[in-house]
Write a protein that binds this DNA or RNA. Structure first.
Length: 306
DNA sequence: TTAATTTGACCTCT
DNA sequence: AGAGGTCAAATTAA
């Protein structure tokens, strides 16, 4: 352990290095033929990364968040990197996409390591055996395929594949297919995965069945949100301030969809009335809500903003 | 010696 | 035909 602020300094350094890499990539794309979607994605990533950097810097330097929103206890409890789910993974930020593509539910996580060294620790605590690796068209890094070590001995069909994100060696895309049915199914990670895999379209959210739709679950530092979205299209959070006028919900985050529609995530949970400032960055709101009300389940709904 | 990883070949799907 | 996913023999590590 590197007690004190060592870990956070390293996280900050890697976060800033990532920002730099994205800026350079963005610069390079400016000269190309219109690639609005790619540029927009980069901008969203950039904004999100800067936001995280600022928060890390604040926590490292003992700077108060100065927002006036949220309770002091909440901000004091905030920064230590989350310990996501029992395993050795130091996964710092997780985004879950629960999809029903090809009829087989899967869970997609984006795990960011604090440093290149930490990337090896993106282990989820479960035992996997690598059975293949493939270069993916247009991707900088190959995709590695894993299946459960106990596939043959216990007939466990769980698989996953891991791919490093282009332009960001710290970001890993992990897609899980199937839940563990072997002995390690009792492992916290496997149990959570099983739970997530049960979040399928038409189940448990009151959302109507929609042909080809997927359930998108977002998780930031353990706080979860679930919503029904269009078929497995990538979504990004915009960092713009929310504008939930007239709504009863204090927690209201903008979600930018590739269909050019603006969406808003609204919390119907009492936690939404915790006095969180509307103008704060969504991730900060997420963390504020989570740290002040971590034990409560959250329910979210997706609204078109226009 | 056993288990895990690597890697080229093969299969399936679009 | 090409891309993604899986198989299995060869190789490496424990």
């Amino acid at each position: 352990m590197d007690g004190g602020y060592g870990g956070e300094k390293s996280a900050l350094a890697s976060e800033l290095a990532q920002v730099l890499a994205m800026v350079r990539e963005l610069e390079a794309r400016m000269d190309q033929d219109p690639l609005p979607a790619a540029a927009r994605e980069l901008c969203a990533e950039l904004a999100s990364s800067v936001d995280r950097s600022i928060r890390i810097a604040r926590s490292c330097c003992g700077d108060s968040p100065a927002s006036g929103a949220g309770s002091p206890t909440a901000t004091a409890a905030m920064p230590p990197p989350p310990s996501p789910r029992g395993g050795k993974s130091i996964g710092l930020r997780t985004i879950l996409f629960v999809s029903s593509e090809k009829g087989t539910p899967c869970v997609r996580r984006q795990l960011r390591a604090a440093s290149v060294q930490d990337a090896a620790a993106l282990d989820d605590g479960l035992s996997w055996r690598k059975y293949g690796q493939k270069d993916i068209l247009g991707a900088k890094y190959p995709r590695a395929y894993f299946r459960c070590t106990h596939r043959h001995s216990q007939g466990c069909l769980a698989t996953k594949h891991v791919q490093r994100a282009d332009g960001d060696p710290l970001l890993h895309d992990v897609v899980y297919h199937g839940a563990h049915t072997c002995a390690q199914a009792a492992h916290p990670s496997a149990q959570q995965l099983r739970q997530e895999l049960q979040l399928q379209p038409g189940h448990g959210h009151g959302a109507q069945e929609d042909q080809g739709a997927s359930l998108l679950a977002l998780e930031t530092e353990g706080l979860r949100a679930g919503l029904l979205v269009e078929p497995m299209t990538p979504y990004w959070f915009a960092s713009a301030a929310a504008a939930g006028d007239g709504a009863d919900f204090a927690g209201c985050f903008p979600l930018l969809s590739p269909t050019a529609l603006d969406w808003q995530l609204r919390s119907s949970h009492p936690a939404g009335s915790l006095g969180v400032g509307i103008g704060m960055e969504f991730e900060t709101q997420f963390e504020e809500l989570f740290t002040t009300n971590a034990t409560e389940p959250f329910q979210w709904d997706l609204y078109a903003a226009n």
